[in-house]
């Protein structure tokens, strides 16, 4: 146990601040509890005589399962990237003084924000073509790309809300003084309002990214070869023994946990840091 604890060292980006170190101690403790639970469960399973132990099964399939996990991360990063790219302008348009523009942006945001993510994913996978032909060029459109779009849409809507919220939280005096210095609205947004928003937007944006990452396992429902799909296949390959279900799924749970938990902790840390400064 001690050796395991020592393996964790605070990440460099957190700096040497006392709170950061404290929160990292907490991280270690929580991670330890979860991992121990998994190992205990696994050990109980492994006690089944005759069959190969759960450890050896996990080790055997780890390359495949982790490859699947990487695919989840790829989907999450692409979805969040695309969602941010479209969501930022969408959020800005919501604050437009041109009423119809703001109304349309508002409607799009609310529509995609209030649709269940899984339903959105189904619609994207079912409705989008499997390839697009442009000037004789055949661009294939595999299911995982459709899944990226399916996740990017709710990401976009939520990013738009984050941007809108941050923009309206900038004191009105900033708009006023920019306007009286002759800045056009676009100049004011790009040079004065948005740069001030980045700090405010970062924590909720990271929180959203965590949620999207968790949601990528939904892609297994539409047959994308991500971690959850592969876990089911591994289970089948090992003879569908019921006692393997819990440890196998716990394995992917631990993978997501190890990835998302530090993001959550870092978000909390940033929130605290900016709260004090602003």
């Amino acid at each position: 146990m001690l050796r395991f604890r020592d393996a964790f060292t605070p990440l460099p980006f957190l700096g040497a601040s006392a709170t950061a170190v404290r929160s990292w101690r907490q991280t270690q403790r929580t991670a330890l509890v979860v991992l121990t639970a998994v190992f205990v469960t696994s050990a109980a399973m492994a006690a089944n005589g005759g069959q190969p132990s759960i450890f050896s099964i996990l080790i055997k399939w780890s390359p495949l399962l982790l490859w699947g996990f990487l695919f989840n991360l790829l989907i999450s990063i692409l979805s969040m990237g695309a969602g941010t790219l479209v969501g930022v302008p969408l959020g800005m348009l919501q604050t437009s003084p041109v009423r119809p523009v703001a109304a349309v942006a508002r409607f799009i945001t609310q529509f995609f924000r209030n649709a269940p993510w899984l339903v959105m994913l189904f619609i994207c996978v079912m409705l989008l073509p499997f390839e697009i032909r442009v000037f004789g060029l055949r661009i294939p459109f595999p299911d995982w790309v459709k899944a990226v779009i399916g996740f990017a849409l709710p990401a976009m809507a939520n990013v738009a809300e984050i941007v809108r919220g941050a923009m309206i939280s900038v004191p009105s005096g900033q708009w006023e003084s920019a306007e009286s210095l002759g800045f056009t609205r676009t100049q004011c947004v790009m040079k004065i309002i948005l740069p001030q928003c980045i700090k405010r937007m970062l924590p909720p944006w990271m929180n959203l990214y965590s949620l999207i990452t968790m949601a990528t396992v939904n892609a297994s429902v539409v047959g994308v070869n991500e971690m959850l799909t592969l876990t089911a296949q591994v289970h089948a390959a090992e003879g569908s023994r019921p006692e393997l279900l819990a440890p196998l799924y716990a394995y992917s749970l631990v993978c997501f946990f190890i990835y998302a938990y530090p993001i959550g902790k870092w978000t909390e840390y940033l929130e605290r840091k900016y709260q004090v400064k602003d």
Partner: peptide, 11 residues
């Protein structure tokens, strides 16, 4: 124009 709250750009 100069305002009561300065309204400098903090960044």
């Amino acid at each position: 124009i100069v305002f009561q709250q300065y309204n400098l750009f903090p960044h």
